[in-house]
Design a protein around this nucleic acid. Structure first.
Length: 273
DNA sequence: CCTTGAACCTGCGGGC
DNA sequence: TGCCCGCAGGTTCAAG
């Protein structure tokens, strides 16, 4: 489920319900996800107050009162949601945070590509999984000049460059296709062949596509609190993703599906050049 | 350095 | 109905 907009939505939901609250108890229902849970995880977290919740790339960082930071990643299939404390655990409920007021926050992840780790407030940026991350697409440092510079001398298809997290974070398989459609650029174009003007337009498209999706998720934030844990992701409108064979909304030409580095790409061969 | 492909794991839908 | 295959929103690692 999670691309950047979903992670952002989850972060906002968590902020609203956890900041200032105390994590009274933690239950780990298996020893690991993508990596082992840290030694003494429950002991380092239980009883502490949540000071802040923020996002870096698709990682969620939960800062506790003593400077310990919980690092969460949802992988491909992870979900976080709130429910009544003591609810019978469901399949793939791996971590349960008791947050008082009769509520618990659940991390459920069928495929277990997600992860949970610990770091410190003054050291998270040098955490092995975070230290090589690229630009945040919604920040001002990600602009036309920056993208243009990143693309120089690179032969890789622009879609793959957008998804390279050591250059730009948070643009996953769905929004890479959607952004390129909005910008009118073929996913197959060699990155190094983009003009400055195209880079400018692509940056605008990426920001718009992500912001629109966040807005859609934000409007269903109430659902985050609901028991089903859905965030409105599937209700969001896509122009090309998953639309193979359907008429392009701009020119009616059929949307095409191809594979790039093993991942599906969708685009309109007529209006994306 | 850059690029590609496999790997991690479960669930679902399609075809036979 | 059941089995096998391919596919799925992410990321890391090894190999070329």
């Amino acid at each position: 489920m999670p691309e950047l907009p979903e992670v952002e939505t989850v972060c906002r939901g968590l902020s609203g319900m956890m900041e200032g609250q105390r994590i009274t108890h933690v239950t780990l229902r298996r020893p690991d996800l993508r990596i082992p849970f840290p030694q003494g995880f429950a002991a380092q977290v239980a009883g502490k107050k949540v000071m802040a919740i923020q996002r870096r790339a698709k990682y969620i960082l939960i800062t506790l009162e003593d400077g310990i930071v919980i690092l969460l990643h949802l992988g491909m299939s992870g979900r976080i949601f709130l429910r009544d404390a003591g609810t019978k655990p469901q399949k793939h409920d791996h971590v349960i945070f008791d947050v008082g007021q009769g509520k618990e926050i659940v991390f459920n992840d069928p495929r277990r590509f997600g992860l949970v780790d610990l770091t410190r407030q003054d050291a998270w940026q040098t955490h092995p999984l975070l230290k090589n991350l690229g630009l945040e697409p919604l920040e001002n440092s990600f602009n036309g000049a920056a993208l243009y510079a990143l693309t120089r001398k690179r032969k890789t298809p622009i879609k793959l460059l957008l998804m390279n997290a050591s250059l730009i974070v948070g643009v996953g398989n769905i929004y890479a296709s959607e952004s390129l459609f909005r910008a009118g650029i073929s996913p197959l174009r060699h990155a190094g062949k983009l003009t400055q003007k195209e880079a400018d337009g692509l940056v605008v498209s990426i920001k718009q596509v992500l912001q629109d999706a966040i807005k859609a998720g934000g409007s269903s934030l109430k659902d985050f609190v609901a028991a089903d844990g859905e965030t409105g992701y599937f209700q969001h409108h896509f122009s090309v993703y998953g639309k193979e064979g359907q008429p392009c909304e701009r020119c009616k030409h059929p949307i095409k599906q191809i594979k790039q580095s093993g991942r599906s790409t969708f685009y309109c061969p007529s209006c994306q050049k």
